[in-house]
Nucleic acid binder design. Structure first.
Lengths: 161, 161
DNA sequence: ACGAAGTGTATGGGCTCCCATGCATCGGCG
DNA sequence: CGCCGATGCATGGGAGCCCATACACTTCGT
């Protein structure tokens, strides 16, 4: 089973790389752009939840998209710690014109299964994910912000070694 | 479906990180060690196939394991382009003592499904992977060495831009 | 008003991954 | 025997991922 997942991931990754070349963006960048579609005011923290990745990873990807002029980034006046992210016109155009990376081959493979099998697979996969991430309670997005990940208190400078 | 896969991958990755800490190795390193178990003469190329990754990635991971004294690496006398990799005594001890990273939570979640669902999931996943990677023919390992990945001929220095 | 605690984001480090390239080696062919 | 094409592996580059940390900011309690 694990091996199956590994192979699936690699296939997706390679497929994403191929699709990337037509758009000139990486899979993560495109995914972030698509996640911002229809959301004019998303913070990097929210985006991290949406994309199920670490906020530091999102930070870097967003910085690159901002450099490319595909994402607009401005301080949230209500909370100056936060940023408000949204797609620029160029970003919107690009998102519309690009197929979802990796999804093409996956969708084709999934559709080849037949509808009953498709539903069964999605259901089982969902159960596995939930089973892995939940310790006795439900959570909409695993790990990202539901439970503290970093041990010990935050804040303040730590004394050096 | 894709989102389910992404979440699964992240859950696996995070789980692997946790397991890593008890062993002091990364998930990829541990996976490589386990792949060498019971195989006294594996080449990096074969290892790349076994682990479904690029040979350059394997090369770096193996170098680290070699530095750690967990993997023995010697030239293959029959073909000096190749290396022969095998676990050292320390590597064997470590592999035996360590649970498979990421597998714990996944196995637990999969076992919670029930045996009929487990079989169904494995079968469907396998079909999806095969469907993604195979264009009209069967292949034991996707992408790694079945089809040429790099466009154009190899060898010789390319003229610069 | 001030300090403490918590939050949001960026940065650095380490690792993995893939792509492209370069070097050493091997095998086949003329 | 020499050359050429192919192969195996290492290296560099770029990107992404997570962890830990730092700084700026917000909120809350005194």
């Amino acid at each position: 089973m694990l091996d199956g997942v590994r192979r699936l991931v690699r296939a997706l990754r390679l497929s994403a790389r191929e699709a990337e070349r037509t758009v000139g963006l990486s899979g993560a960048q495109l995914f972030v752009l698509k996640s911002l579609e229809g959301r004019p005011e998303t913070s990097p923290g929210e985006l991290a939840s949406l994309t199920a990745t670490d906020q530091s990873s999102v930070s870097v990807v967003v910085a690159r998209l901002h450099e490319r002029g595909l994402v607009d980034r401005r301080r949230d006046p209500r909370d100056r710690r936060r940023f408000s992210l949204s797609l620029t016109a160029a970003g919107r155009r690009l998102v519309r014109g690009a197929p979802d990376p990796a999804q093409g081959p996956l969708v084709a493979a999934v559709e080849a299964l037949g509808s009953a099998d498709r539903r069964a697979l999605a259901r089982l996969l969902d159960r596995v994910v939930r089973g892995m991430g939940v310790r006795g309670r439900q959570a909409p997005l695993f790990f990202a912000d539901e439970e503290p990940r970093r041990p010990g208190p935050r804040g303040g400078r730590r004394p050096g070694p």
